[in-house]
Amino acid sequence: MGGKMIKYSIVDDESNLIVGTCDDIVGLSGECTTSDENESFHKIILENFQIAQTFKEYCNKTKSSVTNIQLCVMDIKGNSMGSYYFSLRVPLYFQKNGYGDKLIYVELIGTLLTKASKEALEIWEVWRQSLPTSTNLWFSLSKEQREGWLEVVRLYSKGSSNQQDEQHGVYSFDATYVTDSTSFFCALGEAINGPGGYFGFDLLSLEDCLCGGFGVMPPFTINLQNVSDFFGLDNAFFKQLNEIFTNKQVKLVRL
C-alpha cells in the first residue's frame, strides 16, 4: 500500500477516457518552449507515464488519435481536482507508438491554453493532502500567491459548476482581510460557495458567474462584515462592482 502517489492523469478530451497517469509534468507552467516554422509551441514532459490498459484497447479498436488532452491534478485518493488544457501540434497515435506497460518519459509539443503559475502548483500540492475546511486560509499569502489561489479555486470549481442555482439567498461576506481586488475575490468565492469556493477572479468573470452555473443566481443579498476602507465609494474597483451588482439585482448590505 506504500506505493508512489500518482500526481497527474491525462484525459483525452474527445473520448473523455483516461489516457494514462504520470508522476509529474515538466513544463506545465509554460516555461519550456520550442519553435517550428517560425511558430512557438509549449513542450511538456510526462515523467514516469503509464498508459491505461482501457485506453490502449480503445486505440487498438478505433485507431483513434489524440489531439486535445486535459492534464488533471490528482489528490491522494486518486480523484481529479482540476485540469489544464493542452492542444497537441500533431495528433498522437498511441497504437502506432507501441507504448508498453513500462513507466516512460513522454515529450509532447503543443499549446497550453492556461499556464499553471508556480504559486498555483504550490497550492495544488497542499490541496492534494487536504482540501480547505475553513475560510480565510489565503489571508497570509502574498498577492502573487493569492492570485495562484484564485487560479486553483477557478479550476477546482469547474467540476461543480453544474449544480442547481439558488436564488434569494443571503450570504455573509467577511471583509477582514480584503485590501485589494484579488483578496476581494478570494473572500467572495468563500462567501458564496464556502471554503476554497469560487465566484469570479475579476469583474468580467464575476459577470459570467452571475449568469448562473456556479450555485447562485440573482437576486440575492450579501451582508458585508468587518468592512475596510477598500469598500469606500471613491474606490474605482468598488464603483464598478456596485454598478454590476445593481444591474444584476445583487444587494450589498453593510453590517
Rank of each mutant, 00 (worst) to 15 (best):
G197H: 10
Q53N: 10
A116P: 01
F55T: 05
R154N: 08
G30K: 09
K158V: 00
S142E: 08
T176G: 07
D180C: 11
T111E: 06
S183G: 05
R146W: 03
V227F: 02
L241Y: 13
Q95A: 09
A52L: 13
K102W: 00
F184T: 05
G82S: 06
S161N: 08
S183P: 03
K102F: 01
D202Q: 08
V19R: 10
S142L: 07
Y8W: 15
G197A: 11
S130C: 12
H168I: 00
T114L: 13
S160P: 00
D75F: 07
N162T: 00
F86V: 03
G2T: 04
N16S: 14
M74L: 15
R89A: 08
G2I: 06
W149F: 12
Q225D: 14
F220G: 02
D174T: 08
E47G: 04
I45S: 07
A191M: 13
Y93C: 15
N60Y: 12
F184M: 09
N242F: 04
Y171V: 02
D13V: 09
G215M: 05
L210F: 03
N79S: 12
Y93K: 15
K43N: 11
L210G: 03
Y8N: 13
S157M: 07
G212D: 00
S117M: 06
K118W: 00
F238V: 13
S15D: 06
Y198Q: 03
L103Y: 06
D13P: 03
Y171E: 04
N162W: 01
S80E: 11
E119R: 10
L155S: 04
W127D: 05
Y177H: 15
F199Q: 10
G30R: 07
L141E: 04
I44S: 11
G27M: 06
L206N: 07
V73Q: 11
G98Y: 00
W138G: 02
L255C: 14
G110M: 13
V66C: 15
N162Y: 01
L88E: 08
K158T: 00
C211H: 00
P219I: 06
Y8L: 05
N226W: 01
C211E: 07
H42P: 08
L46V: 02
V153I: 13
T133L: 05
R254F: 07
T135M: 13
C72R: 15
D180L: 05
C186Y: 09
E47C: 04
I45M: 14
S183E: 03
L203E: 05
K251D: 01
Q164M: 01
L17K: 15
I10F: 07
G2V: 01
D202I: 01
G110H: 12
Q164A: 12
K7H: 11
N38V: 07
G194L: 15
L131R: 06
S134G: 03
L28F: 04
P219Y: 02
F201M: 10
D229E: 10
S183Y: 02
K96I: 00
T67N: 12
A52W: 04
F245S: 05
Q225V: 10
V11G: 04
Q225T: 01
N136D: 14
V153N: 07
H168E: 05
D23I: 01
I44H: 09
D229H: 14
V106I: 03
S35E: 13
K115G: 01
S172A: 14
T182K: 03
W124E: 02
S35R: 13
L103V: 00
N16T: 06
G200L: 02
G194P: 14
